[in-house]
Design a protein around this nucleic acid. Structure first.
Lengths: 126, 126
DNA sequence: TGTTTAGTACTAATTAATTAGTATGCGACC
DNA sequence: GGTCGCATACTAATTAATTAGTACTAAACA
């Protein structure tokens, strides 16, 4: 009845961020990192990582006794999909109103915009 | 255990969009509009709108036999909060990487950026 | 060797989100 | 006046997301 999320959910993203950052991680390493921010059980992290593996966001390999997880998809691709999903859901697919929001709330300065515009136009043409 | 969403959830947003668009709406009007997109039960819409009222996104007034709902908060404010929450969650609060994504995926053209930059700089100074 | 340690597997509980059925009331219409 | 349509109230079921406990296993070590 309730459709599963098509992108990473909140806690899933937290874990993926850590794995992307570290390159590869055991459950324990992710667990320790998460503990720095909030209280969480080791098995909770393990369960989440197993789910992420089922969802094809993580790959695991056996190393000694432990599972070592690595990202199955590059960060840019996954985050990009999240951005697209957000733009679709909230702004019906058009990015420009999102940009207006960012600017109006002062999250972006004119300098930011111009810098990005240069990126888009590496030297001369469009 | 599982914290409630601090922003509008998917279906809640769908309903709010309709109410913002229409100014005010009965359950039936929202229901009819939603039916154009997908199958949904009248009572489902009603339940959602009641929840939205509890969450202070909608206000209701009795008109004749029916409840007439209006937005309790302006669209810009609510959407702005969603944008902020997204930027916080996905990009740790910095909007610039989001912008890079939008540009790289071709959702924004250089022209869009420059146009917005002008907005930010209404005539002369910063 | 026996015990502590660190790992996974399995199980399960809770909650928000989503969806919708059933009951009930009231006004309109025949 | 009876019935039909439309409104709400109340109830409930399902599922994804989140959290974590318990059992079991094997390595490490004293």
């Amino acid at each position: 009845m309730r459709p599963p999320s098509t992108t990473l959910t909140g806690q899933e993203l937290e874990i993926m961020k850590i794995v992307w950052e570290r390159g590869s991680s055991t459950v324990r390493e992710v667990y320790e990192t998460m503990l720095e921010r909030r209280k969480v059980a080791y098995t909770t992290v393990m369960t989440m990582m197993k789910i992420l593996e089922q969802k094809k966001y993580l790959k695991k390999t056996q190393v000694e006794r432990a599972h070592v997880y690595r990202a199955a998809q590059p960060k840019g691709k996954v985050i990009g999909a999240m951005v697209r999903e957000f733009v679709n859901r909230v702004f019906n697919g058009s990015a420009e109103p999102l940009l207006v929001h960012l600017v109006e709330e002062g999250d972006l300065t004119r300098e930011d915009l111009e810098e990005i515009a240069r990126l888009r136009k590496p030297g001369r043409h469009t």
